[in-house]
Design a protein around this nucleic acid. Structure first.
Lengths: 242, 242
DNA sequence: GCCTGCATCTCGTCC
DNA sequence: GGACGAGGTGCAGGC
C-alpha cells in the first residue's frame, strides 16, 4: 500500500508530482511532510537565510510550517499558525511559500530534491493533555494550606491587580501586615526578584499611607545573585516546590 | 521505490516491522518519523498525560523527540537533545521510550496503529543560518552611531557587569553623567523596566558616592504601563528599531 | 555544570 | 487585538 485516501507517501517523487501532492494537501487541510534538499529564506519580525541542506518540513492544516534539521528541539525556521501556504513550481524546483499578516512575515522553502513526501489525514485530535506540576498547582496548595508560607498567613485574593500588574497571591500575615507572594515553579534568578519588587513598590505607592508591604518569593530555590538582590531590597524567600 | 539505504518509508506497517525499523534507525543515528494512533506519558520537570489520537512523532539522531498534533507550533510533548531512545514491543503495541538525566525525565509514546513510518539519512547539515534584526544588531548600530541615543552620548563598554547582572551598553552623556542602556528588539512591557531598574539601582549602589545613573530603555516602542513605570522610576525611553 | 538573558520566543488569558 | 506573564520554555555565551 503506497497511497490511499488516508495517507499518501512518495519516495523520491518528481518535483511535479510533489508539487501536485503538496498543493492538494494544503487545499484539503491535510498535514504534509517533506524531506529533502532545500534552502530557506525568511523575512518578517527578523530576517534569515539558510543555505542548502537536507531538512524535514512539516505543513500543518492550521497554517503552521516547521523546518527541522537533524539537530535541536527548535525548528531552524518556522511560520506560526494562521499563515497561508502555497506550493509553486519555479525553475524546476518546488517552493513552499508561507505568508501571514500582522506582523507581515514570509517564509520560502525551496526544494531542489525531494527524498520523501507524505500526506496525512489528521481528523480531530483528542488533544486532552493534562499537565501537573505548574505554578497554578502551587497556588492551589498554598490556598489550601497557607501555613506552607508561614504560621498565620492568610490569603485574601489571587491575581490582585496593582499598577504594575497582577500579584499571584495577596494576603496578610499574623500581625495584619500586607503580604504578597510571587510564585515560581522552578529555581529563580534576578528577574523574579525584579518582578516581586515591581509589585511591592507599586502596591506601597497605591496604598500610599506609608503602608509596609512584605514581598515573598516562593520557589523551589534561588540563585546566589537573586538571594543577594532579595536581601538588598528587603524581600523574603520561602522554599516550595510545585 | 519504497526502501533504500537512503530512505525507508512504510505505509501501515505491522507493529513488528515498525519496531524493527525504528530500533534500527535509533541504532544507526538516523532521523525517524512516525504517524499514527498513540498515547503519550511524560514525567520529569512536570508530568503530563495525553489520551489517544493521531500524531506525528519525530526522533532525531541527537536525541530529540517531538510529538506534534495537527495544531500549534509547539510540540504537544517532547524530549530534549541528549535523551536516550529505545523502541519496545509491549502487548502488541510499539512503544518509544525516551529518557534523560539531570533532570530525570521520561517520555513514553505508545502506538496502537502506525499509519506511516519513515527513516532518513541526514548527513551533515550546512546549518549556516544567518539572522538579521537581533538585539545584537541594535547594539552595533548604537556603537557606530551613538547619536541615535542622544547628542553627546559616548558608549564606554558593553556587557559591563554590575551586582545585578551585565548592562547592555554603559556610557556617559555630554555632561559626563553615567548612562546605561537596556536594549530590546521589540515593543517592551513592565518586565524590561524592571530589568533597567535593577541595573540602575545596583550600579548606583556599586558606585556609592551618591552618583546619579541615568537609565534609558531603547526599543521600538513601549506599552502604556511600561511608560508609566518608566516615569515613576525616573527612567527614560528612546525609540529605536533593530 | 550553573547562571544569565535573548527569542521571528509560543501560548493562554484577560481586558 | 493588545497586554501581560507562564513555560517541562529552548538556546547561546560566560564563568
Amino acid at each position: 500500500m503506497t497511497a490511499t485516501e488516508e495517507t499518501v507517501a512518495l519516495s523520491e517523487p518528481s518535483v511535479e508530482e510533489a508539487y501536485g501532492r503538496l498543493a492538494g494537501a494544503i487545499d484539503r487541510g491535510a498535514l504534509a511532510t517533506l524531506f529533502g534538499e532545500c534552502t530557506v529564506e525568511y523575512d518578517g519580525r527578523a530576517a534569515s537565510s539558510l543555505g542548502p541542506g537536507r531538512r524535514h518540513v512539516m505543513c500543518k492544516p492550521d497554517g503552521t510550517v516547521l523546518v527541522h534539521t537533524d539537530e535541536g528541539q527548535k525548528p531552524v525556521n518556522w511560520q506560526p499558525p494562521g499563515s497561508e501556504q502555497e506550493a509553486r513550481l519555479e525553475n524546476g524546483a518546488l517552493e513552499l511559500h508561507s505568508r501571514r499578516e500582522n506582523p507581515d512575515e514570509e517564509l520560502v522553502v525551496r526544494f531542489t530534491d525531494i527524498a520523501h513526501l507524505a500526506v496525512f489525514e489528521t481528523g480531530d485530535d483528542g488533544a486532552n493533555l493534562s499537565v501537573a506540576g505548574t505554578e497554578e498547582d502551587m497556588k492551589r496548595r498554598i490556598l489550601e494550606e497557607p501555613e506552607l508560607i508561614e504560621p498565620g498567613f492568610r490569603p485574601l485574593a489571587t491575581e490582585r491587580s496593582t499598577p504594575a500588574g497582577a500579584v499571584d497571591v495577596y494576603g496578610e500575615d499574623r500581625e495584619g501586615r500586607v503580604v504578597i507572594l510571587e510564585l515560581k515553579r522552578r529555581r529563580v534568578g534576578p528577574d523574579a526578584v525584579g518582578q516581586l519588587n515591581r509589585y511591592v513598590e507599586a502596591l506601597e505607592r497605591d496604598l500610599h499611607a506609608g503602608v509596609e508591604v512584605r514581598g515573598i518569593l516562593v520557589a523551589p530555590s534561588v540563585t546566589d545573585r537573586a538571594r543577594r538582590l532579595l536581601a538588598t531590597n528587603g524581600r523574603e524567600f520561602v522554599s516550595l516546590s510545585p
